[in-house]
C-alpha cells in the first residue's frame, strides 16, 4: 500500500522531471483520498519548484527543464485552484505579481521566462500576455489583489508605454497600491528611475531578486 508520502513524492518527482503525465490525478488523489489540505499541497509544490529554480540559477539544469517544471505546476494548479478558493487557510505565496508585455510589443519570450522564475521563487503569477495596454495590467492587478505589476518592453518604441502605465496608475490614485517593475532588453535601471518605476530587472534572476526586495521578502 502506498502512503500519502509516496503519492506526494510521486507528484514531486513529476514536477522535478517536468513530466505532466498523471500529475493532475496525483494531485486529486492527495486532496480527495489522502486528506491533504490544498494549502499544504501548494506549499509542498512551491518548495520543490523553488529548489528547481535554484538549480537553474546554479547552472545545474537548463531553461527548458525549469519552464517544463513550471508548466507542470500550472496544470496542477488548475486542479488546486478551486479547492484553494474554498479553503479558509491561505497559501503561503511570497507575493502576487501581474506580468505582461506592453501594448505595441509582441516580444514575449523573456517575460514568460521571468514568469516561470517568479513562480519557481514562490510567487503567484498572473500572466496577461503580450500587446497589453496599461488598463489591462491594472485590471488584472485589481482583480487578483496583486502586490506587483511587471511590464516588459523589447522595443525602444514601446518603452514609453511603461511610462504610461505608471501615469495611468497615478491618475487612478492606485500608484501606491502596487510596486511596478520594468524589464526588457532596451530598458535600464536609469529608465526605471526616470519614469518612476520601483525597480528594474536585467534578467530573470534579477527580476526575482528585485520583486522580493520590493515586498520586503528579499
Amino acid at each position: 500500500m502506498s502512503t500519502k508520502e509516496d503519492v506526494l513524492n510521486e507528484l514531486l518527482k513529476r514536477l522535478d522531471e517536468a513530466e505532466p503525465e498523471g500529475a493532475d490525478e496525483l494531485a486529486k488523489e492527495l486532496l480527495e483520498k489522502r486528506g491533504m489540505s490544498p494549502v499544504e499541497l501548494v506549499n509542498a509544490l512551491s518548495k520543490k519548484l523553488k529548489e528547481i529554480g535554484d538549480k537553474f540559477g546554479r547552472g545545474e539544469i537548463f531553461l527548458m527543464d525549469l519552464v517544463g517544471s513550471a508548466e507542470v505546476m500550472n496544470s496542477v494548479m488548475t486542479v488546486l485552484r478551486p479547492a484553494l478558493e474554498k479553503s479558509k487557510e491561505k497559501a503561503e505565496y511570497v507575493g502576487t505579481i501581474v506580468i505582461g508585455t506592453v501594448e505595441g510589443d509582441i516580444h514575449d519570450i523573456g517575460q514568460r521566462i521571468v514568469a516561470s522564475m517568479l513562480q519557481a521563487a514562490g510567487f503567484r503569477v498572473i500572466q496577461i500576455g503580450n500587446d497589453q495596454p496599461p488598463e489591462n495590467f491594472i485590471k488584472a492587478a485589481e482583480e487578483n489583489g496583486a502586490d506587483i505589476i511587471g511590464a516588459s518592453a523589447l522595443l525602444t518604441t514601446t518603452m514609453p508605454v511603461q511610462k504610461k502605465l505608471i501615469e495611468e496608475l497615478k491618475k487612478r490614485g492606485l500608484r501606491d497600491k502596487y510596486k511596478v517593475i520594468v524589464g526588457g532588453a532596451p530598458t535600464s535601471p536609469e529608465w526605471a528611475e526616470e519614469i518612476g518605476a520601483d525597480g528594474h530587472g536585467a534578467d530573470a534572476t534579477e527580476a526575482v531578486e528585485v520583486a522580493k526586495r520590493l515586498i520586503g521578502k528579499g
Partner: peptide, 8 residues
C-alpha cells in the same frame, strides 16, 4: 537559438 543556460 535561445541559450538554455542563460536565457538569452
Amino acid at each position: 537559438v535561445l541559450d538554455m543556460k542563460y536565457a538569452v
